[in-house]
Design a protein around this nucleic acid. Sequence first.
RNA 1: GGAGCCGUGGUGUAGCCAGGUUAACACGCCGGCCUGUCAAGCCGGAGAUCGCGGGUUCAAAUCCCGUCGGUUCCGCCA
Length: 583
Amino acid sequence: MKRDRWCGELRREDAGREVVLNGWVQRRRDHGGVIFIDLRDVSGLAQVVCNPEVSAEAHAAAEGVRGEYVLFCRGKVRLRPEEAVNPKLPTGEVEVLAEEVGVISRSLTPPFEIQEESGVDETLRLRYRYLDIRRPDLRDALILRSRVTGEVRNFLSSRGFLEIETPMLTKSTPEGARDFVVPSRLQPGKFYALPQSPQLFKQLLMVAGLDRYYQIARCFRDEDLRADRQPEFTQIDLEMSFVEPEDVISLMDEMFAHLFRLFLEVELRVPFPRLTWREAMERYGTDRPDLRYGMEIVDFSSALAGSGFKVFRSALEAGGRVRGFKVDGLVSPPRRELDGMVEEARRLGASGLVWMVREGDGLKSPVAKFLTGEEGEALIDASDLREGEVLLLAAGGEEISPVLSGMRDHCVRRFGPPRNEKFAFVWVTDFPLFDWDEEEKRYKSNHHPFTAPSGDCLDFLEERPLEVTSQSYDMVLNGVELGGGSIRIHDPALQERVFAVLGLSREEAEDKFGFLLEALRYGPPPHGGIAYGLDRMVMLMAGRESIRDVIAFPKTQSGGDPLTGAPDAVYPEQLRELRLRPI
RNA sequence: GGAGCCGUGGUGUAGCCAGGUUAACACGCCGGCCUGUCAAGCCGGAGAUCGCGGGUUCAAAUCCCGUCGGUUCCGCCA
C-alpha cells in the first residue's frame, strides 16, 4: 500500500485526516493491549497506535513486527491526549490510529542500534553504511550536502556560470599530488590519470570563450588520508574570464553569506577580512589561521636585544627573533601544565619553549634569573600581561612559526579560551609563487604552475624566485582551508618562464603541458578562479569533525571500503587484456 | 616512512597498571506479563575461550614480542 504522506511532517492540522505511511520501525512498545510503533522515513518519525479495539487485524500484525521492518500503515491522524504529547518530536502532538498495518519487508536484527548517538566502531558502520545512513545525524548531513550543492548551482548559474563536465580519464601531469592511474586497453602500455582537479580543462574552457565555468567536480589524489582528506573528494570548481582577484573574492563573499544565511541562519559580515600570507605567518604562524581566537603572535626581539639568556641572545645575533603570545583562558596554572606545554612544543619540533607567568611586578620563569628588570617590564608591557597570565616565547628563524601556531592550537584545545565568533572567515592572499624543495633541490609551485605572479615581481622572477608573490587567494574558515584559487597566467611567454624556474625543460614542458601552451597562443582571455573542498565546507556547516561524516560512502585511512571490499585483486584475464603483469 | 591511542557477548564499556574459581554492567536480542508509552515497565533466558600468532608462567583478557585492523597526528597532499 502506497504512502500519501511523510512520517515526519504530520502536524495538528492533519488531525481527522486518513493517511497512509510507509517507513521503517524505529521502535515498538508493546503494552500487551495497545502497541506503539515509531515509524521512520527520511523526513522523520511518527507514532502509530495499534489498538485491538480499533482494529484487531492491525494489532495482530503489529505483534509480529520487529525493529527496522518496513511497514505500510493506514489510519486516521488524531490529536494525542494532552498528557501524552511528546514535545521532543516535531510530530509529537499527533499520532496515527492504525486501521491497517502490513509488513512490506522484514529485517534481520541490525548489527548496531539505529539511533542518534552512535559511538559504534567506524569500520562496522562503514561495512553497513546503508544502516548507518538511517541514523538522523548522518542522514541530515547528507540532506544538507545536497541542499548546499543545489544552492551553489542556483547561485552560480544565476551569475552566468555554465556547468561543464570535464574528463575523468585524462593525462598524468608532473607537479602536485600522486596520480591515480588507469591502464588503457586500446593503447597497451599507456595510462590515463584520474584528475587531481579540472584545472587545465577549465583554463581551456576560458580560452574557448565560455567566459564563466563551474563544476561540482570529483577529484582524485593518491596521498595519505586524514580526517579532512579522502582519496576522492568533491570540489566546487569555477573559473571566470576578464577578472582580477577582487572579482573572484567578492563574488565568493556573496556566495558564502548567502549559503550561511539560507542554511544556518547565520549573518556573516562581508567582506571577509583579509591577510596577506606574510601577515598571516607573522601574526599566527600559519597560512590558515583560526581567527575565532585571539592570541596573536608578537615579536619581542627589541625588548630582549642583548639579553643575558644565551638562547635568546644567540638566536638574535644569528638574525633570528624571539616571538610568542599571551595565552588566553589560563591564569596561574600549576607547574605541570607549563611543563606540558614545553613537551608539546618539543613534539612540534621546537628545540625549546620558554614560559613566563606574571607575579606582581615581575615574572616567574625558568629563565627569570637571566632577565633584567627592564627586560621583564618590557615584556609585560609589550604583551599586556596581567597577574597570573602566561606568556610563551620561542626563539629562532622562520621555523618557529609552525611551533607557535601549533602551541596556539594546543592552547585552544586545552584551555578553551574565549571565542570571538562561531564562524571566522578570512582570505589569505599573496602567497609566495615558489617554495624551495630541499629534497629535490629545486623550486616548486606553492599553488600550481599556472598561477600568475604579481605584476611587480616579473623583473626578478628568475633572479629571486622566493621573493615572488602570486595573485592567489585562499579562503580559510575556522583554521580550515576551504578553498584556494588564483589569477592564471595567460601569456605563453610568461608561462614558459615559470616552467623554466620550476626546472622543467622546454621538451618536458612541451610534452606535459604543450596543449596548454599552444592554447595560450590562440587569444586567451585573462582569467582566474577558485576551487572549494565541498566536503570540508559541508563538514564545517554540519558541525562535524571529519569529512567522512558528510560523505555517503567514504574510505578508511588505508583507502579501503569495508562495504564493497575495494580495493581488490582482479582476474588474471583482466590483467592480460591490459597487458599488465605484477612485478 | 614515523609517532600516539583503540581492539573484551550483536553494540558500548568495566576488568588489564599490582596474572589466580562461573569475565561484570548497560543497551540490544528471545520468551512471559502488561491498554498511553515514546530510552515504556516488571519477570525470566540465550549470548564473549577477551583482534590474530608466538613467548614468559603452575596459571594470561591481564606481562613481553610480533602481526592485523581502525583512528589521530607528522611526513606527504601543486
